[in-house]
Nucleic acid binder design. Structure first.
Length: 468
RNA sequence: GCUCCCUUCGUCUAGUGGUUAGGACGUCGCCCUCUCACGGCGCAAACAGGGGUUCGAGUCCCCUAGGGAGCACCA
């Protein structure tokens, strides 16, 4: 049986966005599923728009997601000789020809065709030769597409797709500057790299028949094709900068985990029955073409957040400690003890969707807050609270073993001995510690904050209440 | 405009001729509770429309509508 070889072939004209990442994931999963190879290829023949920064961003994005390649990255600009050789071969065979048509003429042609409501296409003026003005004149090379018959292929996700050759025109395969065009270079690369399964966005469906014709002219084997649907923004429209077309690396900054993103992407256009949660292992075990959906999918940030929280809650804390530490450093909080970070994760993961949110909701533990939340203070800082706070202060001050259990007991005991509900004790204390009415369980908060800060904040709260 | 493609709850989807059309996110309600959450339980919510084929259609065929992509010396 033939070994599966898939590829991801981005053009480095921007960062790795959601659509590209999902295409890469599907291609990668398919290769992994079949114990094949995944090849990375950079399609940089557009000299104007390609940048090394973009290459870097794409590589970093893939690596962050954990999508590793077995071969490459190959750069098309390093394979120009090869494309030239293939073009020469096509020329020699008579499957390609030089075209001297001026851009102006072609533009006019297109304009006329559009006006007459016919599909714009090259009219084949140079197809039979004889229009060459002089040998020095600039020219492009066009592929001589068959006029007759139809091209048919069996798409792994869409089924049979067929196109009449009469719908296709003679496409440019080499620009006047000598650079090959996309349709030529993909064909040559996929052929040379022995790609067995071309998995790409469905915006390429219309290119496929042209590429098949070139492959046939070259007497090259045809790969199988799988065209996956586009990803839409939340609004159901094309992805825009604001709604999700951002780099996947932005998600890292926003405190998302690669596990969550991968899980989200894999379910966006593919399914395995009712299963929602997938480990990498499960993805690579179950991924198949048969269950890729045909219609485009809109992104749903809430579901991504839900998944992110799921992984925040269930992943081994060891895996997220460093990421959390990094997020704290971004807002200038350094040197948090590792054991405290671990405790923080267990306390906050069930109330935060992202690492960034976790940091925002936890910073009060390490850094003094500016002022009390007005509502929280009004509601929980009654004058009687002073007694409560003072009593707790005394207990905490004399506590030697600053353990969660001991702290819990102190709060509990106070409520019990004074015959008040726990809420009447915990809430004023919570506001004193955090400045607002929301925090992790009071014993954990006390423990993570540490004795010194706890005492200071209670003192501060008492003074605040007295001053009112 | 032409060609190709797509169409199940708000969203992601299950479904391959016989289902009370299932799950998940989100929403809403209830329970749990020291706050916020987590968790548990529950409600509402969909086969784009119209024709066929068939004993029977979300599933097959046709038409209409809506959406998308392509029609470059971009990829």
């Amino acid at each position: 049986m033939m070994t599966v070889r898939t590829r991801f072939a981005p053009s480095p004209t921007g960062f790795l966005h959601i659509g590209g990442a999902r295409t890469a994931l599907y291609s990668w999963l398919y290769a992994r599923r079949h114990h094949g190879s995944f090849i990375l290829r950079i399609e940089d023949t557009d000299l104007e728009r390609s940048t090394p920064e973009a290459v870097q961003a794409i590589l970093e994005g893939l690596s962050w997601l954990g999508i590793d390649h077995d071969e490459g990255p190959f750069y098309q600009t390093k394979r120009l000789d090869r494309y030239r050789a293939v073009i020469d071969q096509l020329l020699e065979q008579g499957d390609a020809y030089r075209c001297y048509c001026a851009k102006e003429r072609l533009e006019k042609l297109r304009a006329d065709q559009t006006e007459n409501n016919i599909k714009p296409r090259y009219d084949g003026r140079c197809r039979e030769g004889g229009h060459q003005k002089d040998a020095q004149a600039p020219f492009v090379i066009r592929f001589r597409n068959p006029h007759e018959g139809l091209v048919e292929f069996d798409d792994l996700v869409r089924g049979k797709i067929s196109t009449q050759n009469s719908e296709l025109d003679d496409l440019v395969i080499m620009r006047s500057d000598g650079m090959p065009t996309y349709n030529l270079s993909v064909v040559v690369d996929d052929w040379d790299m022995q790609i067995t399964h071309v998995i790409r966005g469905d915006d390429h469906i219309n290119n496929t028949p042209r590429q098949i014709n070139i492959l046939n002219a070259l007497d090259a084997p045809l790969p199988k094709y799988a065209h996956i649907p586009m990803i839409l923004g939340e609004d159901g429209k094309r992805l825009s900068k604001r709604l999700g077309a951002a780099s996947v690396l932005n998600y890292r900054e926003e405190g998302y985990l690669p596990e969550a993103l991968l899980n989200y992407f894999v379910r966006l256009g593919w399914s395995n029955g009712d299963q929602e949660i997938f480990s990498i292992k499960e993805m690579t075990d179950y991924f198949d073409m048969a269950h890729i959906s045909k219609s485009p999918a809109a992104i749903n940030p809430q579901k991504l957040q839900w998944l992110n929280q799921h992984y925040l809650k269930t992943l081994n804390p060891e895996k997220i400690i460093d990421l959390l530490k990094h997020q704290f450093e971004l807002i200038g909080i350094n040197n948090i003890d590792k054991s405290i970070l671990a405790e923080l994760i267990s306390a906050q993961s069930e109330r935060c969707k992202t690492l960034k949110e976790m940091v925002e909701k936890s910073q009060f533990i390490f850094k003094d807050f500016e002022e009390y939340d007005a509502d929280a203070a009004a509601k929980n800082f009654a004058h009687e609270s002073i007694v409560v706070l003072q009593s707790l202060y005394n207990s905490f001050e004399t506590l030697e073993n600053w353990t969660k259990e001991a702290l819990h007991q102190i709060v509990l005991d106070y409520a019990e001995h004074n015959n008040v509900k726990l809420g009447k004790v915990a809430q004023p204390l919570r506001v004193a510690l955090s400045g607002c009415s929301v925090s992790p369980p009071i014993d954990m908060t006390l423990h993570m904050m540490g004795k010194e800060k706890v005492l200071n904040r209670i003192k501060r709260a008492i003074q605040y209440i007295e001053a009112r």
